[in-house]
Write a protein that binds this DNA or RNA. Sequence first.
DNA 1: GTAATATGTCTCAAATGTGGGACATATTAT
DNA 2: ATAATATGTCCCACATTTGAGACATATTAC
Lengths: 184, 184
Amino acid sequence: MKDTEQSIIEAAILIFNEDLSAPLEKVAEKAQITRRTLHRYFKDRNELMLKCKTEIRKACHKAMQKAYDSTEDPVKRLEYMFYAGVECGTKDTFLHKLHTLHDHDHRAHDKECAEYDDTFSVWKSHLQYLQKEGLISSMMTVEWMHQLFQGIVGASVSSRNNPKNDLEVVKKLGWFSFSRGIGL
Amino acid sequence: MKDTEQSIIEAAILIFNEDLSAPLEKVAEKAQITRRTLHRYFKDRNELMLKCKTEIRKACHKAMQKAYDSTEDPVKRLEYMFYAGVECGTKDTFLHKLHTLHDHDHRAHDKECAEYDDTFSVWKSHLQYLQKEGLISSMMTVEWMHQLFQGIVGASVSSRNNPKNDLEVVKKLGWFSFSRGIGL
DNA sequence: GTAATATGTCTCAAATGTGGGACATATTAT
DNA sequence: ATAATATGTCCCACATTTGAGACATATTAC
């Protein structure tokens, strides 16, 4: 019964990803509880948002790290990390969105931003490594490849909203487009 | 002095794209006017939102059509239509977002959705044509290529938030990734 | 079955967002 | 310079959102 808190967070991520200032009522609806119950778990919107941020950072970091550790082969490693992004779904897209908002100024000494950077530092370092090895195009910056990654993950997640699109198929399509898109 | 209305719309598109339920105060700030002035031009949030939707549909439709008409060469045509998307910037990403929201059910008989479909029907038809001619991969659906298009346009628009990234460079990078991503 | 815990219902006060009236000031056109 | 128009300031009524107390009901653990 303690998973109510978690289900609220999951619901909030889905709602806030589409509408940052959505009323908490909508989050409660999505979580299939009352707003009163939501307030028993979270003092206010801010506290809920903080928990969401922690959750998405944790989940994405864990998934990316796991993918990285799952193989030694540089190209497979890249592929699995891409899949990790897709499997994180809305959590990944929301995380990226929060750190590219126009008013959010990203500074590394901030704790949240540091954790965000940390989550993708392995990923970015790996992209640089692949460039040095000549496995992927050197004409593009790591920043662009990261934006491309987030963009294609977003496209994959959108595709999955249509239930007729199987996760595995979507992942393969996404990887095809991403890998070729970075000149692999 | 009549361009105040237009500048409010432009500001609203930027704000609402990031935060659908953002207070109108934020729109006014972005447009560098008072909320009181905003209310003189738009009765309420709903009216403003409708104007935004009309604006983005109009702008994107016009840009896509212009790109289509600018050449006869099928591949160049595709390339120019991609650039059109990037040049529409937030307008394109916002338009796409509005029609992929979870609560928005997309039905063709609805006037707004019909116009949306119309805007990208030329684009999608052209993708199908290229597939039939064997110029791009036939392993993927038109829907996926469209999602990919929107995803990479979004990545390009994000990149441009960093002023050191020149529009032309971003366009070229985006096109490189997109064209290869669809197997061209 | 009983106690503990979780959730729902009803209610309400505070905070925030919204729309617009009244009037002053600023800008533009002629 | 003057009139017309646009915008800002101040203010207010209204709607929505928010956070929580009090209590009933439901669920779970033992």
